[in-house]
Design a protein around this nucleic acid. Structure first.
Lengths: 247, 247
DNA sequence: GTTTCCACTTGATCTCCGTCAAAGCACCTA
DNA sequence: TAGGTGCTTTGACGGAGATCAAGTGGAAAC
């Protein structure tokens, strides 16, 4: 598995997280140009940010919280097709209509750019287009890896995959417990996990209980997780134990 | 569903199919520059074009035949994550290692560009980067739609989805029978279909037989398919009957 | 002609996961 | 304290699809 690149902002005194998505080099002029067309929007947990089929007049990135991309069938079956974590980008320069719902899974703050000016800026600034291409290719790889999870893994492996992915993503910005333990809170309800994994929430609950019984994870309450040995969990996920990805 | 954009080459006297992938406007200078760094490679059905983890020193597009992108787990389970049809692009400017196997499903001819020169050309030619970004976004959408198929559809719906997708993709360049009938040959073995759909080949065979029994498709031999009513087949696939995608 | 091979079909059985149903638990309001 | 609400857990059961195992048919090889 490939781990999504973390951008090095250590040299960027004036590079707020809200521009990480489009700014890898933190060019001052670009930041200024981006600042000129940006605005913020907040959403409550559960709120739909964009409906599938809607006109999309902005692009943007997640500043805080978690948003999800969801496909829906006519009869109501749904499949989550992506998770957007802070610094992830939403939107399609060059296309007007949203291909899936975007929902706020937790409370979300987004930094938006009006689409027209953003596209113009992209035309003038090859660096932004390149940056966007790299990000899109990363997401494509991640989507394809997720296809393996959806198509071929058992329920137990799916849960183990999801938990270890969240753990690694979280751990890279969060706290690491002593002796390699990883401690974090699941940011998703059982139902959201089921939507992401192509399972039912009952199966998710059962498999989490099973992993807990087998000592692969420890649970305090329903959300607070400790992973004593990430390697073992990843074996359980059927992964060759290196790297990882999300979205 | 969104249909992958077909490029209009009606005005392009000198635009061979081999450049459709990177050339939307058919700029003469760009074509010349691309011509200078291109070469052709042929592969036999079943051959592996690129192994996961290999160094990739070229990018390119499929000229004829069908290639597939495949993920493999340690224990041998596999999941096809994309089909490459003529004019589709392979490769990752900016990344060296292939994230999955690329295999020739039928005999394949590819038009390749050495990666280094191609990347340099991309730097000088914003148009190519834009074009590539659009293509990658299209593929991302397609991958995400396929996640819905893998995660939530029944075996019967999966088969109906795959057949109607191939039919539409084929029909757009192939022959249309009278009275809206679509006639074509399945370019995939039952096993390859199973790999793409997250099923076993036995289930694929059974579901194809079932669709045939129900009159949704007609079969002559094992591969030659007639679809009397595409709308009905797409309903069976659980699709809101518009558009379609592939790869 | 017949043998071999390979893709495919069909059948019998098993099992994992979905479905339906009930109950537990934390948190909020009154 | 009681009741409500939302999220979660657990149990019982059934079915869609996997697995194992023959068998078919058509084309190439001998």
């Amino acid at each position: 598995m490939t781990i999504k690149a973390q951008f090095d902002h250590s040299n960027c005194a004036d590079c707020p997280i809200r521009h990480r998505a489009v700014c890898a080099r933190c060019d001052a002029d670009e930041l200024e140009a981006l600042d000129a067309i940006k605005y913020y929007r907040s959403f409550e947990a559960g709120q739909t940010i964009i409906w599938s089929g809607d006109q999309m007049n902005f692009v943007g990135s997640v500043v805080s919280g978690i948003a999800s991309l969801t496909q829906t069938m006519e009869d109501g079956r749904t499949q989550m097709v992506g998770l957007l974590l802070p610094s992830d980008f939403v939107g399609r320069p060059g296309r007007d209509v949203a291909p899936y719902d975007v929902q706020a899974t937790t409370d979300v703050v987004m930094c938006c750019f009006r689409k027209k000016p953003f596209e113009e800026l992209m035309d003038e600034t090859p660096h932004i287009a390149h940056r966007l291409l790299q990000m899109t290719l990363d997401e494509l790889d991640a989507a394809r890896e997720w296809m393996l999870v959806l198509g071929r893994k058992t329920a137990r492996e799916k849960i183990a995959s999801l938990i270890s992915i969240i753990a690694r993503r979280d751990a890279s910005i969060g706290q690491k417990g002593l002796s390699g333990q990883i401690v974090f809170d699941l940011p998703l309800t059982r139902e959201a996990m089921a939507d992401y994994l192509g399972l039912t929430l009952e199966t998710v609950s059962r498999q989490i209980s099973a992993l807990k019984k087998d000592g692969l994870i420890l649970l305090e309450g329903k959300r607070h997780v400790t992973i004593p040995d990430l390697g073992r969990l990843m074996e359980e996920a059927g992964d060759d134990s290196d790297g990882g990805f999300l979205v």
